[in-house]
Every structure is written in C-alpha cells, then in structure tokens.
C-alpha cells in the first residue's frame, strides 16, 4: 500500500447497499404469507440484490483490512455542505413541501426562491433576488394557473386572483 495515497472513504459508499438490504428484508416481510404471484418476482430480484450487496460489503471489508479504504463518510457529508449552503437548501426544500399545501404555489415559490437564493448567495444582492423570485413565481402563476388552469396547489393568492379576474 502507498502511504501517500489517501484512503478511499467507503462509509458513504455503503449507505446505498445498507438501505437496499434493509428495504429488501422489509419487502420480504410484507410478502411472506402472500400468494405466489406476489412473491415470485420480488424474491428473485430481492435475492440477487442481497447477493450483490453482500459481495460489495465483502469487497469493502477486504479493502479496509488491506488499508486501502476507511469507513469515513467524507464523500457524502463534509464541512463543504454547510459552506455551500446545501444544508440550508435542504431545509428550505422541506419547508417548500410543507408550506405549499397551505400557502399555495405562488406565495410558497416566492418565499422558497428568495430564501434559498439568499442562502446560496450568502446574503448578497437581496433586492435582485427578491425581484427574480417574484418574477418567477408570478410567471409560473400566469402560465400554469391563470392561462392553462393546471392542477397546482392553490392558496390565498390564487383564490384572490381568481376572484379578482372573474369579477373583471
């Protein structure tokens, strides 16, 4: 092993196989007493998935034992995630999904775009960001809700605008 070569961070690479194993075992538990038609395909695919995951985990163990890899998670999480605003973007995305049911598409999109862009831009150019966000949110409302009556989540703004426009 070359001591200068950084060790491969295998912890992050193991997340998907571990998720796959847990999900497959859960899936098997839901079909254990089901008719064969519900089982045949899932057992075939799931067994192969478990096998390839086991092979991958074995490969990782061998790599760690030989000193080429470590159980680090640097490929998945790092300080960069905070610095780039990724964690902030994740929080605003969850907020977008929660709020859109109550506030409707236009207002939630405006809030989400403004806050996310300000986080990613590290607070620079707030007026420009607010203008871009407003233009995008209103543009989305005009095209998808007003013009095409698409089934977007509706809230106070959409209801008010509908009343205003229908009453001339």
């Amino acid at each position: 092993m070359n001591p200068d070569k950084p060790r491969r961070q295998l912890g992050g690479e193991l997340v998907i196989p571990v998720l796959a194993i847990v999900f497959t075992l859960y899936f098997f538990s839901t079909i254990w007493n089901s008719p064969w038609t519900a089982q045949v395909s899932a057992f075939a695919v799931g067994s192969i998935l478990l096998l390839v995951c086991a092979m991958f985990i074995l490969r990782c163990i061998l790599s760690i034992r030989s000193g080429e890899g470590s159980l680090g998670f640097a490929t998945l999480f790092s300080r960069e995630d905070l610095a780039t605003g990724r964690i902030g973007l994740l929080i605003t995305t969850v907020g977008f999904c929660v709020l859109i049911e109550w506030l409707g598409f236009t207002l939630t999109t405006f809030l989400f775009l403004s806050i996310s862009m300000i986080i990613l831009a590290k607070g620079k150019r707030p007026v420009f960001i607010a203008a871009v966000s407003a233009a995008m949110a209103l543009g989305g409302w005009a095209v998808f809700i007003w013009a095409f009556d698409t089934r977007f989540p509706r809230g106070w703004f959409e209801t008010t605008m509908k009343a205003v426009l229908s009453n001339g």
């Binding site: 796959a20 859960y26 079909i31 089901s34 695919v45 192969i48």
Partner: peptide
C-alpha cells in the same frame, strides 16, 4: 436491482396483495 425492487412496490397484478408500501 434496487430500482427493480422499488418498482415492485404496490399491489401484485393478480391478487392485488399490497407489497412494500410502508
């Protein structure tokens, strides 16, 4: 294969038995 497994979520086509639906 993880994709194929996720694609199996839902009821089976013959007896409509729910599978892996959480």
């Amino acid at each position: 294969f993880l994709g194929l497994m996720i694609g199996s979520i839902g009821t089976d086509v013959v007896y409509a038995t729910p599978r892996g639906t959480f």
